[in-house]
Design a binder for these strands. Sequence first.
DNA 1: TGTCGACTAATTCTGCTTTGTTCAAGGTGA
DNA 2: TCACCTTGAACAAAGCAGAATTAGTCGACA
Lengths: 93, 93
Amino acid sequence: MNKAELVDIVAKNASTTKKDAETIINSMMETIIKSVASGEKVTLVGFGTFEARQRKARQGRNPKTNEVLHIPAKRVPGFRVGKEFSEAVNKKK
Amino acid sequence: MNKAELVDIVAKNASTTKKDAETIINSMMETIIKSVASGEKVTLVGFGTFEARQRKARQGRNPKTNEVLHIPAKRVPGFRVGKEFSEAVNKKK
DNA sequence: TGTCGACTAATTCTGCTTTGTTCAAGGTGA
DNA sequence: TCACCTTGAACAAAGCAGAATTAGTCGACA
């Protein structure tokens, strides 16, 4: 599913226009990105939590050339799955 | 940041009401959950990809009692961070 | 049309796993 | 819209499975 399909379904469920749905979804993603980038985690109960995780520097490896490379410490966005989300995935199909 | 703050910011940025923003966000989360639960991954360019991952059965351990426990194979929701999201987190603060 | 995601290699490190408690967040009713 | 109550999230410990790392190409998405 791509963003267009998501917007379509959301617009139908929320009884609004695709334009409004897309605008809000884009704004939501932007807001989450900014919040996580600023170090603040975003908690959405029943869905999950977006947070920035500190990753330590470590010795990586280029699987292509099998060459050792140094990976500096950096922050990466992380997502912790919520309860409802996890249960829905395990129950269905 | 909790959902109420997110809705507030999104409503302001999208020039809509909190009610509409919350409705759409809830519908969006529900749609994503259902899609991932049905095995279909949801790709949001610039943000990330939600997908169901198959996890093999393995020997876990209860850190509290140091007791070995068997974890059955199951599906868990996963989130892969997009390019824009990752860059925003590394650049800021 | 141009950009971004998927795919894949081998190896190391990070996170997930459980359970209970504590605390904050969400939902509902007024 | 606010307060209260219910409910979900955070935290810790120990070990293993899985995620992540690079880079180029293909194909899909904006």
